[in-house]
Every structure is written in structure tokens, then in C-alpha cells.
């Protein structure tokens, strides 16, 4: 069984700081009404993993998680 890292976002924790959309714009965006996180791709390619991890580490509200499953 192949384990694929999977991104999740918690829009109730998000406060729209925008670090994810700034550091990893191909994975994250923000909605037009409240600027809250929108996940563009939930299974990042291996090449996208460093950007995904940076978005997780810089998110001020722990609104992004990456899980193997």
C-alpha cells in the first residue's frame, strides 16, 4: 500500500494571514469574501512537498496539516 501525503486545511482556524498563498501559490489560495484559505491540490507532488511544509510551518494559526494515508 502506497502512502501519499495528503493536505488538509481548517478554515475555522484560518485568519487569512496569507502566508500559504504567498509561499505556495500553486497549492493554496484565499477566497474573495473573507480571505480564508482554499486548498487547490490536496495531494501535493513530491516536488511540491517543500512548499507545502513551508506553508504549514509559517501558518500562524496551525490551519494546515499534512498526513500520510
Amino acid at each position: 500500500m502506497v502512502s501519499r501525503p495528503h493536505l488538509r486545511v481548517d478554515r475555522t482556524a484560518c485568519r487569512g494571514a496569507g502566508q500559504c498563498a504567498y509561499h505556495a501559490p500553486h497549492l493554496f489560495d484565499q477566497d474573495d469574501d473573507e480571505g480564508l484559505v482554499i486548498l487547490l491540490h490536496d495531494t501535493p507532488s513530491p516536488a511540491d512537498l517543500p512548499a507545502a511544509r513551508l506553508a504549514i510551518a509559517t501558518c500562524p494559526n496551525q490551519a494546515i496539516t499534512l498526513t500520510d494515508r
Binding site: 487569512g16 496569507g18 501559490p25 489560495d29 484565499q30 477566497d31 469574501d33 473573507e34
Partner: peptide, 17 residues
């Protein structure tokens, strides 16, 4: 805080900037 900040976040999104 959230009530007021939410009124502003759309003005400062990465796309808007």
C-alpha cells in the same frame, strides 16, 4: 477581533496585493 479582522482580510489577500 475576528469579527473586525474578517471585514478586512479580503482586502489584503495575496491575490489582491
Amino acid at each position: 477581533h475576528g469579527r473586525l479582522r474578517r471585514m478586512l482580510t479580503s482586502e489584503f489577500t495575496v491575490r489582491r496585493i
